[in-house]
Computed example of a mutant assay.
Amino acid sequence: MKNPIKVLIAEDHTIVRNGIVALLEKEQDIEIIADAKNGQEVLEYLKKGTEPDVILTDINMPDMNGMELIATVSSNYPKIKTLVLTMLEDEKHVIQALDSGAQGYLLKNVNIPEIIFAIKQITSGYKYVCTSVTLKLLSQINGRYTGASTQLKTDVEISKREVEILSLIAQGFTNSEIADKLFTSKRTIEGNRQNLLEKTGTKNTAALISFVVRNRIID
């Protein structure tokens, strides 16, 4: 029998945290090994040897919020996957979480089966963003490319290496993961990403990916 996926939950509201624990504990493929009210408590668990496969975390928490936790875990515990569960659905937080190293992003209006599905997806090596967030981001991106802005920009010169990087960004890989795959440094990838934003005149990752897909730079 396959070992259950070990999950650590970080949520500052006790009732919400206990409810998530109670519902996920019913799933045979998932084992809740600890729960915490903020990122600092999560790090204390990790330092003591607790080894979750997935950290399911809120963003707004006292002492250490979810974004800080994600970045710290990504840097110091790269084998641990992080999955956001939050009320925050704006583009800024979604992009920040994924860029910080989160493998998935869920809103608190999702049902338990979708949380379970997301946990299984990210432990299988995939990224997962809930449908409502994806649709909202696509709507926002499409809204920026109406009227004159729908004209494709054909004078942008993209190198073969930059196309490789764009493809990996589109697949949801972090700067560190891309650096590992391309045998270069994280700093180099960060520089390439910034150059691509400037070349394409885009302001963030979501807009960059929309641009390169619309211009058929990547499929």
Results as ranks from 00 to 15, higher is better:
residue 84 V to M: 12
residue 84 V to D: 09
residue 84 V to N: 09
residue 84 V to T: 07
residue 85 L to M: 10
residue 85 L to Y: 12
residue 85 L to K: 04
residue 85 L to W: 08
residue 86 T to R: 07
residue 86 T to F: 06
residue 86 T to L: 11
residue 86 T to C: 00
residue 86 T to S: 13
residue 87 M to K: 06
residue 87 M to F: 12
residue 87 M to A: 10
residue 87 M to N: 09
residue 87 M to V: 10
residue 87 M to D: 03
residue 88 L to Y: 12
residue 88 L to S: 08
residue 88 L to F: 08
residue 88 L to G: 01
residue 88 L to H: 14
residue 88 L to W: 08
residue 89 E to C: 03
residue 89 E to S: 11
residue 89 E to T: 08
residue 89 E to D: 15
residue 90 D to M: 13
residue 90 D to Q: 15
residue 90 D to G: 11
residue 91 E to D: 08
residue 91 E to A: 14
residue 92 K to V: 14
residue 92 K to W: 04
residue 92 K to Q: 07
residue 92 K to D: 12
residue 92 K to I: 09
residue 92 K to G: 01
residue 92 K to Y: 11
residue 93 H to G: 05
residue 93 H to C: 04
residue 93 H to T: 13
residue 93 H to A: 08
residue 93 H to V: 06
residue 93 H to F: 15
residue 94 V to N: 07
residue 94 V to F: 02
residue 94 V to D: 02
residue 94 V to Q: 07
residue 94 V to A: 06
residue 94 V to T: 06
residue 94 V to R: 03
residue 95 I to M: 07
residue 95 I to F: 01
residue 95 I to Q: 04
residue 95 I to S: 05
residue 96 Q to R: 13
residue 96 Q to S: 14
residue 96 Q to N: 13
residue 96 Q to F: 06
residue 96 Q to Y: 06
residue 96 Q to H: 12
residue 96 Q to W: 05
residue 97 A to T: 05
residue 97 A to E: 10
residue 97 A to W: 08
residue 97 A to V: 05
residue 98 L to N: 11
residue 98 L to M: 15
residue 98 L to Y: 03
residue 98 L to D: 08
residue 99 D to C: 00
residue 99 D to A: 05
residue 100 S to L: 11
residue 100 S to W: 02
residue 100 S to V: 03
residue 100 S to M: 12
residue 100 S to Y: 10
residue 100 S to T: 05
residue 101 G to K: 06
residue 101 G to Q: 11
residue 101 G to V: 13
residue 101 G to L: 12
residue 101 G to R: 11
residue 101 G to H: 12
residue 101 G to D: 12
residue 101 G to T: 14
residue 102 A to Y: 04
residue 102 A to S: 14
residue 102 A to M: 14
residue 102 A to D: 09
residue 102 A to H: 09
residue 102 A to R: 15
residue 102 A to Q: 15
residue 102 A to F: 09
residue 102 A to K: 15
residue 103 Q to K: 15
residue 103 Q to D: 15
residue 103 Q to E: 15
residue 104 G to V: 12
residue 104 G to D: 15
residue 104 G to H: 12
residue 105 Y to F: 13
residue 105 Y to H: 11
residue 105 Y to T: 11
residue 106 L to F: 00
residue 106 L to H: 00
residue 106 L to I: 00
residue 106 L to M: 04
residue 107 L to E: 01
residue 107 L to N: 00
residue 107 L to G: 03
residue 107 L to P: 02
residue 107 L to K: 00
residue 107 L to S: 04
residue 108 K to Q: 06
residue 108 K to I: 03
residue 108 K to M: 02
residue 108 K to F: 01
residue 108 K to V: 08
residue 109 N to Q: 13
residue 109 N to L: 09
residue 110 V to Q: 04
residue 110 V to N: 11
residue 110 V to G: 02
residue 111 N to D: 13
residue 111 N to S: 10
residue 112 I to Q: 04
residue 112 I to A: 06
residue 112 I to W: 08
residue 112 I to V: 13
residue 113 P to K: 01
residue 113 P to F: 03
residue 113 P to C: 03
residue 113 P to A: 07
residue 114 E to I: 08
residue 114 E to H: 00
residue 114 E to N: 01
